[in-house]
């Protein structure tokens, strides 16, 4: 089953990393995936986004016309991609930044107060982990355990194993509280 995901927000919000982590979780849990970044000036300060496709089968183009999941870390990012969501799709809203909006009624909206929950997890930089936790819970595209192990492995391989515990706390809180 093909799942098409866009992560979008401001440059500097860890959008690209969030996308890579979701990809890595898919990879480590045995799925095929593609990850594709947004381009050029968009990557420097303006909006940033990346497209992730996850499937049991070979994936064609890594770009998506329509998507199943939108991780929206900022208002402009949500405006840009919300129309691409298929009916029944999931919008994850970073409600630390984006509040008081009404959305399409044919989609599932999950508000995630990433900053507050990250603080609660004693990992103030863990907003993207909180978001991944929420995404795993609502979409079921992978298991929390598989995802947690993959994220630990990723950080360990990149010489950042010291963040593993804090990451797991943020991931779990996102999973449990959203």
């Amino acid at each position: 089953m093909l799942k098409e995901i866009i992560c979008a927000g401001f440059g500097g919000q860890g959008i690209i990393t969030t996308g890579i982590l979701i990809s890595y979780c898919a990879f480590e849990t045995g799925s095929q995936f593609t990850w594709y970044p947004s381009y050029g000036s968009e990557m420097r300060g303006g909006t940033a986004n990346c497209t992730i496709k996850i499937s049991d089968e070979e994936i064609a183009s890594p770009l998506a016309k329509d998507i199943d999941i939108l991780v929206g870390m900022s208002g402009p990012a949500i405006d840009k991609f919300i129309d691409s969501l298929r009916p029944g799709g999931y919008l994850f809203v970073n409600s630390s930044l984006v509040t008081g909006r009404t959305y399409r009624e044919d989609i599932n909206v999950v508000e995630v107060d990433t900053e507050e929950l990250a603080k609660e997890a004693d990992n103030p930089k863990g907003a993207n982990m909180v978001m991944i936790g929420a995404l795993v819970k609502h979409t079921g595209i992978m298991t929390l355990e598989g995802c947690g192990e993959a994220i630990n492995k990723y950080f360990t391989e990149h010489g950042k194993a010291k963040f593993n515990e804090a990451n797991q706390r943020a991931l779990k809180i996102g999973y449990e509280k959203c």
């Binding site: 890579i20 990879f27 995936f33 593609t34 990850w35 890594p62």
Partner: peptide, 9 residues
């Protein structure tokens, strides 16, 4: 550009 910049396993 796509094959070059996309990520896969």
């Amino acid at each position: 550009a796509i094959i070059g910049q996309m990520m896969e396993g």
